[in-house]
Design a protein around this nucleic acid. Structure first.
Lengths: 339, 339
DNA sequence: TAATGGTGCTGAAGCGTTTAACCTTAATCG
DNA sequence: CGATTAAGGTTAAACGCTTCAGCACCATTA
């Protein structure tokens, strides 16, 4: 259907090889006169030729495509804007690096199959948004597929990552709330498989400990993205000693908490302060607006993509992980502890 | 690096062709004894073999990959959850159809280049989330790439589409607001290049007209997704005759409107009713919760994907567009017109 | 005049599959 | 007993591209 390199060669009256050299501008490898170049480009133009990416990938060794591999379900079912901002960053950076994006959102049940599928030649590398202990990571290394983790640390030293300094983020939240005078604080954490959630918890715990009001075990509740049950949270809010503040590990969770809190009849922030994480755009549009620890999501995503591009280019050497510090973004949902 | 079909053949002691036949289970084409099959599968297992998708695509004629082509910038910069729900639907359906997803989010400046890139052999078809008058559509048809539009009608009869009945959606909003007694209503519309925005406007206009309170021209304001300027909206809200209700063409816009309205000092819904479109999850979490015309985003996305899969399978014949009716979802942001 | 070197190109071998066409062997038939 | 036929494969030509190795030609140089 589409024109092939052969047709271009015929029309320009040269060999296929010559066309290939000109198209890839492999200067130095072989010299081609300006006149011949000119003729070839004209033929390309006239035929509307575009090289076949499959053939190119097969013959050469690069496809200029990377996979974005996500945890299924959990990721697109969240409506916090995290996903959108991340995709934005990833797509931007990929484009800037001249890479195309193949989306992988399979169940994580058949990790081996997923790894094999990723090794089918279509991609030069993989950007992973997965649990930090995901077996897929090691499998990709085995298949020697350049891999970078985003929004998670990596336990495999050969796999670099780009993420927020989540421990610092947790600490920031803790220091801020205690500085407001809060002593009894609830923490809604994420999955224990998420290094981000775990780190935020640890940082938060340390901050509270340093402030002399250690986090109670029964004040740590897991509240993943999706339609998690919030009744334990409601109970904890009313149980003595009643918390006067909540640190939610994500804006997503914070927002759902706000609705819950309204139902109970507590006022934010007079009765209860709430702080989230991510500081996505909609924090400005809730009522009251949501105080949140801000991580630069597009930046982190983009940095991850750039690292991956570099690994693909130069081999996996010298790829160095990157950790971006978060900053506190104070809005209306937090205030002094009630006396 | 990865095992090839050749190695499998050698290990199983058969020819490459035999392996190919067994792997693709092309029964009827050639017969292979159970014992040979068995040996081949064992070799596959032992070598961890997975066919190279590029070679397969080159030799055969299918890649089992489709492109999801989006309007750049506009799409991931929205935080309303539309994008997330759509991606969810698309990813799900693609997986169900055995298709992989290649993401295309280029600028729409170089449409010809984009079309050529889509014709580079990597994809069997394209799912488009674009302006309804986008020149890319016709270009893809020229290149005879199976194409389906989602969330937009198509002006090219050979390109089927899956979308919401947006005109009905507009009508529903109009009938509901007029039934509440509102006579002066503001409409925040989207881009004139979006068939959804245009259709919703038309349906809304018709409904108001039928109710005997035609929509004033100065009560139609464009408010696209991104950081559009809202001062004209603020002005219109205070200008006589003062609107008592607003129909926003998307939840995204409605949410930003709510913040704006709070600044002005109007109460929702006592002073001003607000109705959005999409009824994404966060409508349940705003304060007050947001009344909205609900379209089934994942369903529409999935139907589009299924149509595309069918077109790829059976050729472009008999593909029939699908239009899903929306329903009204009443929450707290709308109420009777103030007397 | 022969050797050397640069210029400008071409031939052909891959890359890993699919698939139409053909080949071999042994059993079956008339 | 020679001809069919079925079973169970194999051969080799694509698919569209990259790239190494060479080759012909002309202009220098020794």
């Amino acid at each position: 259907m589409a024109a092939t390199i052969k047709e271009v060669a015929e029309r320009a009256g040269v060999s296929i090889a010559t066309v290939s050299y000109v198209l890839n501008n492999r200067s130095g490898a072989v010299r081609i006169s300006p006149r011949t170049r000119e003729r070839i480009w004209r033929a390309v133009e006239e035929l509307g030729y575009h090289p076949n990416a499959l053939a190119r990938g097969l013959a050469g060794k690069k496809t200029h495509t990377v996979a974005l591999v996500m945890q299924y379900a959990s990721i697109f079912s969240s409506w916090s804007g995290f996903t959108s901002e991340m995709m934005h960053g990833v797509a931007d950076a990929a484009h800037a690096c001249g890479l195309d994006l193949l989306l992988h959102t399979r169940e994580r049940s058949d990790v081996r199959a997923e790894a094999l599928a990723l090794a089918d030649g279509r991609v030069d590398g993989a950007l992973l948004l997965r649990d930090w202990d995901d077996p897929l990571i090691d499998l990709l290394v085995e298949h020697s597929i350049p891999t970078v983790l985003i929004f998670s640390r990596s336990r495999n030293a050969t796999v670099p990552y780009a993420c927020c300094d989540d421990e610092l983020g947790g600490r920031i939240a803790g220091e801020y709330l205690t500085s407001l005078g809060h002593r009894h604080i609830l923490h809604l954490t994420g999955s224990p498989h998420s290094s981000a959630a775990v780190d935020r918890l640890r940082g938060f715990q340390n901050a509270l400990h340093d402030a002399g009001c250690a986090l109670r075990t029964d004040h740590i509740l897991e509240a993943g993205h999706a339609g998690a049950d919030f009744t334990p949270v409601a109970e904890a809010l009313l149980r003595e000693p009643r918390p006067t503040a909540v640190f939610a590990w994500s804006d997503d969770v914070a927002l759902r908490l706000m609705a819950e809190v309204r139902n109970i009849g507590l006022r934010v922030p007079q009765d209860l302060s709430i702080i989230g994480f991510d500081s996505t755009e909609f924090c400005n549009h809730t009522h009251p607006t949501l105080t949140s620890v801000a991580q630069d999501i597009p930046l982190i995503a983009a940095e991850g993509m750039k690292m991956l591009a570099a690994m693909i280019e130069n081999g996996s050497e010298e790829a160095h992980s990157i950790v971006i510090p978060p900053v506190l973004c104070i809005r209306e949902s937090t205030g002094p502890a009630p006396s």
